[in-house]
Design a protein around this nucleic acid. Sequence first.
RNA 1: GGCUGGGUGGCAGAGUGGCCAUGCUGCGGACUGCAACUCCGCCUACGCCGGUUCGAUUCCGACCCCAGCCUCCA
Length: 463
Amino acid sequence: MLKIYDTLTQSKREFKPMVSGKVSMYVCGITIYDHCHIGHGRTFISFDVIARYLRYKGYDLTYVRNITDIDDKIIARANKNGESSTELAERFTKIMHDDFASLGMLPPDIEPKATESIDEIIEMIEALIEKNFAYQGTNGDVYYHVPVCKDYGKLSKQNIEQLQAGERVEVATDKKNSMDFVLWKMAKPDEPKWSSPWGDGRPGWHIECSAMTKKILGNQFDIHGGGSDLQFPHHENEIAQSEAANECCFANTWIHTGMMQVDREKMSKSLGNFFTIKDVLSKFRAETVRYFLLSSHYRSQLNYSEDNLKSANSGLERFYVALSDLDLANLPEMDRSSDYVKRFETAMDDDFNTPEAIAVLFDVAKAINRSKDNEPTEALKLASVLVGLGEIIGIVQQDPQTFLTQAVGNEEQDNEKIEALIIERNQAREDKNWTKADEIRDKFVEMNIILEDKNGKTTWRRG
RNA sequence: GGCUGGGUGGCAGAGUGGCCAUGCUGCGGACUGCAACUCCGCCUACGCCGGUUCGAUUCCGACCCCAGCCUCCA
């Protein structure tokens, strides 16, 4: 039985989709104007694993992840670069796709863009005005009037009075209430714009997600996710807009991921303490990064550090060392009734507990190592479990030798030279010239390469 | 100030009212020409103070500390 922690009710609840066997999931993607950093990677890898596991459980999943491709920051950056906001957004969308793919993420089923949903956005704003949840200010901007929403704050457990008490000084606007937020913003000269009943302009932040969920998944759907920093105000405002406009409950389960930290501080653009996915991939293998991101629970904060990445790499090597020397080409089907599989599923059923699930994989690896020499059939069966379970979370899918010998990040790939030196050393060993053999091995150490003499064969891997 | 989440062994990180987490590192042993890998074994834990209980790291209360949100944010 799958249980998911729901932010709205602050509890783990048994997951029951609205339509038996089908799941609709909407995840807030990014506002695209720059490179993605590893914090983005963390969130979307979490949802990648959630999507993979839902499918493994047999659900027919529709996974939607949007792109917000029009917003003040995009316009500002495009102006600075001397390109159009469309060009900027398209350029970085491509880069994002590459980055996400290199981390082993499967693409979402649908990836809607705000600029392709303007009609739906306008329709929803019209509905909100008609139902008296929104109004047009004297400057032409259209606002959502928060005090009209009687349960505003239910997701983030805030109430309006407290929020107003803590509000920061802001420039004068013609909002009726300081909590009111923009639905439609009038265009200034030379800004991108779409025509609307209120004048040429663009959608405010928040409304695009309400419009896109409705367009693609309907008024109500199973899962809505995103980073925990979106809980307030973004998701709170989505709820306010959608439930008012649709007169219907919005998402049934809310999933929020924990923030990546650097030196115990949130990684963010404004603090400048971020590492882009490309930065990290220049130093570590993509699979190591993925494993690192899954090695803590998706809801907890995760501290970025190179030591943690190195430790993650060592852990992953353990899996591949266990799999090496096995006839992986003839792997049997994974036996889903195996105890390991059951333990893995129990862990994942408990709010996608990947650290616990990975612990099961290490137990499988140990069992493989024990049986490798004397029970090859058993070892191969266990290997099928390791590879099969690894696939569900997107790790341990490479050829072991490839993983263990591939160059890391910026390292030079010089396998031929390595193989030649190994032959030279083995000749020395045959001649019982231990001094020379050890000298050659010292060279390898300098190259950060570890040799292993096993069963009369020498293999190597990068340390 | 309000609202959330959290404080576990050298590090990372799960979890549980009484029994092994797991990984990385370190130490001892087996294996090895020597190593490496692997296997076997070992080490130091549950922020602090009370309470409930036969028994609490796990439940309750107070306190201390950390992070996130309350501005754009994954």
